[in-house]
């Protein structure tokens, strides 16, 4: 069984490297942001497989957290790209 999980890990790592290539290379900023988002999700997958290998349920929170952080980060970046700021100030100040 462990072999299968290790194969899955290797495949996920290769996927990570591919996304990394996009992060480094990617011509536009949007390419890089999408690639980073995907890398985060990959990371969640790796943690999931690790917790299977380690036979524990303690790391499920980490997976959820990665999901939230990746989402927040991508949204923040998207807003930054569109408006130039992440948190807008009140208009009349």
């Amino acid at each position: 069984m462990t072999v299968i999980f290790n194969i899955a890990l290797v495949i996920l790592s290769i996927a990570m490297f591919c996304f990394l290539y996009r992060v480094v290379k990617g011509p536009s900023v949007a390419d890089r942001v999408i690639a980073l988002d995907a890398m985060g999700i990959c990371l969640a997958g790796i943690v999931a497989i690790f917790s299977i290998i380690l036979e524990t349920s303690e790391f499920l929170e980490v997976i959820l957290l990665i999901g939230i952080l990746a989402f927040l980060g991508t949204v923040a970046f998207a807003k930054f790209l569109q408006k130039g700021v992440v948190i807008e100030r009140e208009r009349d100040r």
Binding site: L43, V47, F50, F59, E61, V62, L65, I66, L69, L72
Partner: peptide, 21 residues
Amino acid sequence: TLFFVLFRAPDLALTQLVIET
């Protein structure tokens, strides 16, 4: 963070993720 996962430290991993972000 991944090291923390690997070395079985879930609380550290959680905190490290958030703080790093």
